[in-house]
Design a binder for these strands. Structure first.
Lengths: 148, 148
DNA sequence: CAATAGAGTTCAAAAAGTCAACTCAATATG
DNA sequence: CATATTGAGTTGACTTTTTGAACTCTATTG
C-alpha cells in the first residue's frame, strides 16, 4: 500500500502506519533506539536489508523527522540519531516486544526487561489513570473513538 | 522481507513483526477489534485492500491464531472474530494510536479516548511498577535486553 | 601513498501487490 | 419456486517493491 493510501484513513493508527507501516522501519527504529547513533553499514549487516532499500528507508525516516543524519564527531562520516519523535516510539516498541515474548515464545529470544531506574523494581506497560497514575486493568478500560 | 527473514532475528520485536509486519495486518486487526465480528466485504471496502491480498492476509491471521473464521449465527456464511491473541494487541494498537495523534495531528482524525469503565476517569498508556501498579515516568525506565 | 572500509548507487531479476473481471453458493424478491 | 442480487472469494494480466550483486567514490588506516 502506498503512503497516500494509508493517509486516506482518518484514523491515528493508519496515520502512524504512514511512517511505520513498512516492513523494515520498526526494526530500524529499534536499532536506532538501542544506541546514541547507528551507522549505515551497521544497520545493513544487523538487519540483512538490501542496501538500496536501506538508503530509501533512512531518507524517509529523516524526512519524517524520526531520525537525524549527523556528522560523526571528529570524522567526516555520517550516522543516524533518533529524534524525540523516534524516542516517543518506545511505547510502541515495548508493546510489540511484550506481545512477541508472550505469543511467540522462544528460549533463544532476547528478553526485554524494564525496571525503574531509581528503585530497580520491575515495571511494565499498562493503562493508568491520568489523574493519579494508578494502573488500571485492561478489562476495565473503555475505548471511545470520537469522530471530529 | 519474508517471514523467514524476520524470524532469524532473535528478538521479540522481530518475532512480533513476523505476524504483524505486513502493511495491512494492523489495520485488519484494528477493524477486527472494533466489533465482535468482521465480514470479508466489510474489511475490503473499509480498507480498500485488494480482494486477493485480503484473502491471503485473513488466512495468515487465522493460521497465526489472531483471527478465527466462524459461521455467522443463523446463516451459512462466515465472519472473522478476534482471538485472545488478537485482543492482546490492544496495547500495541493504542501505543500506535497515541503516537499517531501526537506526531501526525490532524483535526479531521478520529481521536481514540480511553477511560476507566468503573469511574469514567481518563486513562493512558504508561509504564507502571508491577509490584504496586504505580505509574513511572518513561524517563525513569531502564531497559535491559537480556540475551538468553 | 597504496589498501581497505564506509556509505551509498545502479540495474536486472524475483516477489509482492493491484485491479478488474469472473465464479459460484447463499440469500432475497416477485 | 424461479430469478436476481449479494457475499466471499479466484484468476490472471499488469505494476510496484524488494532483492542481490556489482560498482563507485570518498575517508581512513597502515
Amino acid at each position: 500500500m502506498s503512503t497516500a493510501n494509508y493517509a486516506k484513513h482518518l484514523c491515528p493508527i493508519a496515520q502512524a502506519l504512514v511512517d511505520l507501516g513498512d516492513q523494515w522501519t520498526l526494526l530500524i527504529v529499534r536499532d536506532a533506539l538501542s544506541q546514541k547513533q547507528v551507522r549505515f553499514n551497521e544497520l545493513q549487516e544487523n538487519l540483512g536489508i538490501s542496501r538500496n532499500l536501506l538508503t530509501r528507508r533512512l531518507n524517509q525516516l529523516c524526512e519524517a523527522g524520526i531520525l537525524e543524519k549527523v556528522a560523526v564527531e571528529g570524522s567526516k562520516r555520517f550516522a543516524y540519531e533518533p529524534t524525540e519523535k523516534c524516542r516517543d516510539l518506545r511505547l510502541v516498541i515495548h508493546a510489540m516486544a511484550r506481545w512477541g515474548e508472550k505469543w511467540r515464545p522462544d528460549p533463544r529470544l532476547t528478553r526485554v526487561e524494564t525496571t525503574e531506574k531509581t528503585t530497580g523494581k520491575p515495571v511494565a506497560l499498562t493503562f493508568a489513570r491520568t489523574e493519579d497514575g494508578v494502573a488500571v486493568d485492561l478489562a476495565d478500560v473503555r475505548v471511545v473513538r470520537r469522530r471530529p
